[in-house]
């Protein structure tokens, strides 16, 4: 994936977030979100207001398990 290109990360059917590729190497890619997320107290992330509508809502990626 070339740096600068846009992608969407779908955590589930109705929870996704868009971002820009900052770097990619072999099978890994680093992305910067178009809009910042908000970390909740339980460790999950919420999409802030202003994100494209398809991405609104709680991002339910919970730590599983920590590396």
């Amino acid at each position: 994936m070339p740096a600068g290109s846009t992608l969407r990360v779908e955590c589930s059917a109705d929870k996704s977030v868009t971002g820009q590729v900052r770097w990619s190497r072999e099978n890994r890619v680093g992305i910067a979100f178009h809009m910042p997320l908000r970390r909740r107290a339980d460790g999950s992330f919420a999409v802030l207001k202003g994100q494209p509508s398809s991405a609104r809502g709680w991002w339910a990626c919970r730590p599983w398990p920590a590396l």
Binding site: M1, S5, T6, L7, R8, V9, E10, C11, S16, G19, R22, R28, V29, G30, I31, A32, F33, P36, L37, R38, R39, F45, C61, L67
Partner: peptide, 20 residues
């Protein structure tokens, strides 16, 4: 991950408020 219309199964390895 949806990139250029392609859907790829992937693993989110780490995440912050600004990126992943």
């Amino acid at each position: 991950v949806v990139h250029n219309g392609n859907r790829l199964n992937a693993t989110l390895r780490n995440i912050s408020e600004s990126g992943a």
